[in-house]
Each structure stands twice: as structure tokens, then as C-alpha cells.
Design a protein around this nucleic acid. Structure first.
Length: 673
DNA sequence: CACCCTCGAGTTCC
DNA sequence: CTCGAGGGTG
């Protein structure tokens, strides 16, 4: 057991240091989530050991952003923070605590608002005119940033004398949040890059930096947005329900967070929270949770404050999806095409519910653009909620012992000299017999997108190669003769072997387009393979076609035509094709079965999970009715077929006003059950 | 010659 | 989901 007093002292030091980096220098070394974790740990320890609380503890002051350059403003009322919850249980416990403090029989209703991830500001209006704007500071005293705030378009410089049939109060103090909308932040970063400046890593920090500019002209050039969500103080009679207040503020010309709503019961709130979380990425703005507030402001006021958190509200925080960690090592993977991809091995970090220890670095241009080095502390984000991505480097954490990540000179698997085609971004291992390339190719050959061989996964492929059963994908079709030897392998029981052999046998009858895809010709995926199959009708015809003839196919230009020709000309590849032909793999095209042509000329984009159809079934249905499935939404897309938890495509469809279909709509369109 | 559209390749974790 | 790059179009 660690001595609590020692740990508390350590935490105080850490928090002071990081608080200074964050608030004063606007150059943090750790993420908000990490800061919060340290802070919460200290709060917990102080709760357990109240006697050990010191006056200089950061919890007694809640940070300090009082940089010297700005005039100080004392807030008319403390700008409070919020208690946090992380689960349904936390929400229920909060309601229970709240009800206990109120006369029995009290019925509460609530508002639910997004928890905007920006910087709190306090705006003061006198006789309808914006006279002062301040940062939150330590909650008591903040920085006067009036000239900077005035540059923000969404902050009204003047509010009307009347709204909702009431006279506006002479003096009105409101609280809001300043932030970058996602698209504005992206545009800002595009400009930065264009100007040869490093992009901002984090929208929140960037907004902080923009607000703390001494020269407000710089702030004016930054596309900030401000939302308002609370009345801090008011000289006249104000409304006594949070929901009415939000509407009133909206009518006065303030920007109110879209989606905020009133709910009579907590059950409804509980049902809404997962929707917010699922929809998080589709929003224009960053949120790190939602805020539940007691709608009756008088009751909320009665409930009072515990510490610096009002009892009448709870911030429900979503799991962090961003974290920082150390880049331990760079490794280079070689794909089936020979492309060399740099990957980052990371010190494991818990982000969004999983532990991340690897992340792709995409390519060496990306590495150079980020200037990321081995030993760096990097910011990792789970893009689209799934794939971890290194999005930035915390340059302030450098020690000088970091080493650059450069392309390897030789393939890590076969030692062949790596090549770098002119004008290309990627580096390649040019050896078609490279063991890693062969392994990856076999893996691709049997995968769902290609021949889809049942019972054959990555591990089995590896074992078969290692034990000498196969040396390329064509050898798979000889395995039936080696059934007895296969059974001797560890982990290859009768059932498994027979499933495998049946799967391989069935794969011989796959349609031509799949066979072409499975060959793994660079640049030839399922679509181009299907075009080739239709145009030439057999693999022999394709193999014998000249580059000029290949070029005649719609969608195949000079580059691809040359690439395909060169692929077949390589003896290693033509050898494999020959073996496949000998073993009886289908090499003839067959006209596609048509169920109808009602979707002729229509293009579809699929997103989300459909209630009953799988992606493949939906694709089949569309294609057998003459339609086409494409991967990204554009103006030309006819329909977006949307299921549960859709990705960003749904948003884009809405923007381009492409009609969105549910599975039911889709079935109706086809006239099927 | 710019653009836009589309395709393909590779990616993480459980 | 992202990014690079090929292909086609205005």
C-alpha cells in the first residue's frame, strides 16, 4: 500500500505542472482524460483523508489559467463544474441522491443536452449590449477576452429588448462554450498545412490557443463557434425552467446546441444516451458526453452545491477515444502486393474500451508530415470509433533521444532491396517470391472477398506453409491427396481436415470474377475483376490479351492495362495460373442470373447493419436486379441503404440529399417480402 | 489540366 | 475507415 500522503503530494505536483502547461502555456503534455484521471484520483484520496487536504491543492482552486497578459475578471457568481457519471447506475444513483434531499413525492423532469467539448466563456450584456466576455479561469476569476470573443460570429454583440413577449433584463450574464466545429477545424488545419505550418492536433487546445491570442485579429481569422446554455445571473425576472430558458436564449439570438431536449422521465433520458453516443461522430461538433439537468431551476437552486458541483446536474461522460502513449518501435509490414507499410508499436493504452498497442502509420509521407519518431509521445485516436490512428506528436515531450522513422533499405522478410517507384508514395519489396508476400497472397486468396474458402484462416495458412504442405495458393488444390499427412498435424482432427478439403473442392466452382480477384493482381479488385470477366469471358482470353486490348475495357486505363499484362508475363504468376487450370479451377465466365432489371442504372451505397439482410445478401439483391453497389456517397448515388449505427455516409447522404432507404423501403422497391 | 468519382489495399481488436 | 491513385469528364 502506497502512503496516501506521499501519493497526494505527488499528485498535487503533477497537477500543478500539467495545469500550468495546459492553462497558461496552452501546451499540454498529457491528454484531458489523463489529467482528469489524476485529478479524480486526488479527489478520491482527499475524500478518504480530509485531514490531508492542503490549501494549495488544485482541487481547492480548480486550475489556473490566469496568464499575465489579460485583465482579470471576477465572475458575478461562481462558474461551477459538473459531477461526472459513467454508467446508467451512476445516473440512477444521482437521481436517488437528489430525490432524498427533496420533499417526498417530488416529481422531477429533466433536460438532456450535449456536453460540448470546448472552452467555457462567460458573457455579460448590459442594456442589450455585449460589454464583457471572460474565460472560466478558476471559476471565480477569469481572463477578460472581450475583444477576442467579439470576433466570433455566433456571439451576438447585441440582444433584442424583447423576446418571448418579455422585456430583456438590463443585465444578463450567460455561460457558453467556444469551440471549433469539426469541418471548420479541418479547414483550419488544411490552411495551416498549406502555409507550411504544423496542423493542430486537438480542436479543444486549438480553440484555447485562439481565444488567448493577444492580437484579436488572429482570433478573428479563426472560425470559432460559440454555444450558450445557461443563465448565470440576470437583473430581471427570468424563467424558472431550464428548457424554457434554452428556448428563450435561442430566441434572443444565441446559438443553442442542437439536439438539446426536455424529457419528463429519467427512463427516457436513459434511452436517449446510447443514441447520442452512437451518433457522436455524425455531429458537427465534438462532445465528450451529455449533461442531464433538473428542469426546474428553483429546485436545482435549492439542491445547492457539493464541492464545486451543483447537485441538480450530472455530466454523463463517454469513454475517452483519444489518449497519448509512447511509440516504442516502428515495424514494417509487407503486404501481398509488396507494399511496405510503417506501423507503430505502442506502449499499451486504454482508449474507448479497448487496449491499443499497435497503430498504422499509413505511409512514409504521413510519417514525415507528422514528423513522428521512435520514442515520441504520440496522440492516438480511434477513427470512426474503431481503427487506432496516430494523429499527432506531443513535441513538448521530446527528450532529444528520439530517432527518425525511415524506409528500410531491404525487405525485413526476404532481404531484397526495397524499391521506390518515381512519383509514388509507397515503397515496395519487388520479390514476388518473398515469403511474406506469398503468405499474404494465400491468405487473400482464401479470404471472403476472394475465393471464400471455408475452414481456412490466417493461422491455418501459416501452418500449411511452415509444414511444407503448400508453397503457393495453387498447391491448396493438391491437399486432398495429402489427407493422411494432414491428420498427423497437431490441431488437425478429422472434422477440421474434412471441412477444409470440402471447402477447397467447392472453391473450384467459384464464378470467374472471384477467381480473377483471388489472383491478387495489384489494382484489380472485385469490380475490375467483374468487368474483365464480362468483357473477355474466360481467363485464357484475359491472359492472352494485349495491353491495348485490356485498355479497351471500361474502367481500365493504360496504367492498369500495363500492370495486368506484366502480372501475367511474370513466370511465377503464369505458373500459378497454369497450376490452377490443371487442378480444375473454373476459368470460364457465365452470364449472371437476373432476377429483374428494376434497378438498372441505379447505384447504391450501404451503411450500417440491416435488420435481416447481410451486406452480401443486399449486394446480391441489388446486382441481380441490375443495380450497382459503390463504396462512397456522391451526387450520382441513387440511394443510400441504411441500417443501424450508420457511419458518416448517412450524414453525407443527407448533405447531398441522396434518398435514404431502410431495409423495408428497399424490399418494397424490389417488391419482395 | 483540373477536378470528381471510384476502386483497392491495408488497418485493430475480440 | 482512411488514404493514394487511376480513370474519366468538363
Amino acid at each position: 500500500m502506497v502512503d496516501p500522503a506521499a501519493r497526494m503530494s505527488e499528485l498535487r505536483d503533477l497537477l500543478h505542472f500539467h495545469g500550468y502547461r495546459y492553462y497558461v502555456l496552452s501546451s499540454p503534455l498529457i491528454t484531458d482524460a489523463e489529467y482528469d484521471a489524476l485529478y479524480n484520483e486526488l479527489v478520491e484520496l482527499e475524500k478518504a483523508h480530509p485531514d490531508l487536504i492542503t490549501p494549495d491543492s488544485p482541487t481547492q482552486r480548480s486550475g489556473n489559467d490566469l496568464s499575465e497578459e489579460f485583465a482579470k475578471v471576477r465572475h458575478v457568481a461562481p462558474i461551477l463544474s459538473l459531477a461526472n457519471g459513467y454508467s446508467v447506475e451512476d445516473v440512477r444513483a444521482w437521481e436517488e441522491r437528489t430525490l432524498k434531499l427533496l420533499p417526498s413525492g417530488t416529481i422531477l423532469s429533466y433536460t438532456l443536452e450535449p456536453k460540448l467539448d470546448g472552452l467555457t466563456v462567460v458573457l455579460t450584456y448590459e442594456n442589450g449590449v455585449l460589454v464583457q466576455a471572460a474565460t472560466r479561469g478558476n471559476g471565480e476569476v477569469g481572463d477578460d477576452v472581450t475583444p477576442n470573443i467579439r470576433t466570433i460570429r455566433t456571439v451576438p454583440l447585441r440582444i433584442p429588448a424583447h423576446a418571448n413577449g418579455m422585456t430583456a433584463p438590463e443585465r444578463l450574464v450567460v455561460r457558453g462554450e467556444v469551440m471549433y466545429l469539426k469541418r471548420d477545424f479541418e479547414a483550419l488545419n488544411a490552411r495551416q498545412i498549406e502555409a507550411g505550418l504544423p496542423p493542430f492536433i486537438n480542436a479543444r487546445n486549438a480553440a484555447s490557443g485562439a481565444l488567448k491570442q493577444k492580437d484579436s485579429r488572429i482570433t478573428a481569422s479563426r472560425p470559432l463557434t460559440a454555444y450558450v446554455y445557461q443563465v448565470v445571473a440576470s437583473s430581471g425576472i427570468m424563467l424558472d425552467k431550464q428548457w424554457d430558458m434554452l428556448e428563450y436564449l435561442g430566441n434572443m439570438g444565441f446559438l443553442i446546441a442542437p439536439g438539446a431536449a426536455y424529457y419528463p422521465t429519467l427512463e427516457q433520458i436513459e434511452a436517449e444516451i446510447p443514441k447520442w453516443e452512437a451518433n457522436r461522430d455524425a455531429l458537427d461538433y465534438e462532445i465528450d458526453g451529455v449533461v442531464i439537468k433538473v428542469n426546474d431551476l428553483r429546485i436545482a437552486a435549492e439542491l445547492g452545491v457539493v464541492g464545486k458541483d451543483p447537485r441538480g446536474a450530472l455530466a454523463y461522460k463517454f469513454p475517452a477515444r483519444e489518449g497519448s502513449t509512447k511509440l516504442l518501435r516502428a515495424v514494417f509490414t509487407v503486404g501481398r502486393t509488396g507494399r511496405v507499410i510503417p506501423n507503430a508499436q505502442l506502449e499499451p493504452v486504454f482508449i474507448g474500451g479497448i487496449t491499443v498497442s499497435n497503430a498504422t502509420l499509413h505511409n512514409f509521407d504521413y510519417v514525415k508530415a507528422l514528423d513522428v519518431r521512435v520514442g515520441d509521445t504520440v496522440v492516438v485516436k480511434r477513427m470512426g470509433d474503431v481503427i487506432p490512428n496516430v494523429v499527432g506528436v506531443i513535441a513538448g515531450a521530446r527528450t532529444g533521444s528520439e530517432t527518425a522513422i525511415t524506409p528500410p533499405e531491404h525487405c525485413p522478410y526476404c532481404d531484397t532491396r526495397i524499391v521506390h517507384p518515381e512519383d509514388a508514395v509507397d515503397y515496395y519489396c519487388p520479390n514476388v517470391r518473398c515469403p511474406e508476400r506469398v503468405y499474404r497472397q494465400v491468405e487473400f486468396f482464401v479470404s471472403r472477398g476472394a475465393l471464400d474458402i471455408d475452414g481456412l484462416g490466417a493461422q491455418t495458412v501459416k501452418t500449411l506453409i511452415e509444414k511444407g504442405f503448400i508453397s503457393d495458393e495453387a498447391d491448396l488444390f493438391d491437399l486432398a491427396e495429402k489427407r493422411d499427412q494432414l491428420l498427423e498435424l497437431e490441431g488437425f482432427a478429422e472434422k477440421k481436415v474434412d471441412k477444409l478439403l470440402t471447402g477447397i473442392q467447392a472453391a473450384k466452382e467459384r464464378p470467374l470474377a472471384r477467381v480473377i480477384t483471388a489472383l491478387g493482381i495489384e489494382g484489380v479488385g472485385s469490380t475490375i475483376a467483374a468487368d474483365l470477366a464480362v468483357h473477355f469471358g474466360s481467363l485464357d482470353a484475359i491472359q492472352n490479351a494485349s495491353a491495348e486490348e485490356l485498355n479497351e475495357v471500361e474502367g481500365i486505363g493504360e496504367v492498369l492495362a500495363g500492370g495486368i499484362r506484366a502480372w501475367f508475363d511474370d513466370p511465377f504468376h503464369s505458373g500459378i495460373v497454369g497450376k490452377l487450370r490443371e487442378r480444375g479451377v473454373n476459368m470460364q465466365g457465365a452470364p449472371r442470373e437476373r432476377a429483374g432489371d428494376s434497378l438498372e442504372g441505379k447505384t447504391f451505397v450501404l451503411t450500417g447493419t440491416l435488420p435481416t439482410l447481410t451486406r452480401e445478401q443486399a449486394t446480391d439483391l441489388i446486382e441481380s436486379h441490375g443495380g450497382k453497389v459503390v463504396s462512397s456517397v456522391s451526387k450520382k448515388t441513387s440511394f443510400v441503404l441504411m441500417g443501424d449505427s450508420p457511419g458518416s455516409k448517412a450524414e453525407k447522404a443527407a448533405k447531398l440529399s441522396v434518398p435514404i432507404l431502410s431495409e423495408a423501403d428497399f424490399r418494397a422497391l424490389l417488391g419482395i417480402e
